[in-house]
């Protein structure tokens, strides 16, 4: 199993493959000290501390993971992308906490990428509704859909969740997705 990646395309394909390949690729990015140091330096320059840097670094990797899995990542340098996301998220956080008047801080504004942090992350209200949908779905369905979305094979899902066969896993996944769509139908008016 690969745990050292030579280039960005290897990382992207590992994340898309899912399972342990994805875990290793994400761990590899997370441990990239060089980019993390840049993020840390940037955040400490804009009223943040080490913990803020760590939180933003993780959130940026989550965005990258989601974008790659959903085929929304359009190539380019992965670490440059993560750094750009980090800056955008930190800008958004400062804006929300009113720690800084962004208009008066052109340097920070210049460093923000075109990606709008509002687009990158859901609002708290939206997250609350989505979490309610998941709660009502039940634990087993959450596990099945989680594994399915991470591209685990039906056979692997069956083994991991002690289901009798891969056909049973497929059937359960279909039922759970339908159930979640029903919840979405009900809850979407609250969004």
């Amino acid at each position: 199993m690969k745990d050292i990646f030579q280039n960005d395309s290897e990382i992207v394909s590992a994340i898309k493959s899912g399972g342990l390949h994805r875990n290793n690729a994400i761990s590899f990015i997370y441990k990239n000290q060089k980019t993390f140091s840049r993020v840390k330096h940037f955040i400490s320059s804009w009223k943040g501390n080490s913990q803020d840097a760590e939180d933003i670094w993780i959130e940026s990797i989550l965005v990258l993971d989601r974008k790659i899995r959903n085929d929304e990542y359009d190539g380019g340098n992965i670490y440059g992308f993560v750094f750009g996301i980090s800056k955008g998220l930190w800008r958004n956080k400062l804006k929300k906490s009113n720690k800084m008047d962004l208009v008066e801080e052109p340097a920070l504004m210049d460093s923000v990428d075109e990606n709008d942090p509002e687009q990158l992350f859901q609002t708290n209200e939206r997250i609350a509704v989505l979490k309610k949908m998941l709660e009502e779905l039940g634990e087993e369905c959450q596990k099945i859909l989680n594994l399915w979305k991470l591209n685990y094979k039906m056979k692997e899902i069956a083994e991991m969740l002690n289901l009798s066969s891969d056909n049973m896993a497929k059937k359960k996944k279909h039922q759970c997705l339908q159930k979640l769509k029903e919840k979405a139908k009900f809850f979407k008016s609250q969004l």
Partner: peptide, 27 residues
């Protein structure tokens, strides 16, 4: 639309799980 929202919810689940894993990963 419903399926899109459902997938967004699953992504949230995946993000929560990954966040917890990374917070426990030693740097």
């Amino acid at each position: 639309t419903n399926e899109k929202l459902a997938l967004e919810a699953i992504d949230l689940l995946i993000a929560d799980e990954l966040r917890a894993t990374l917070k426990n990963t030693p740097r």
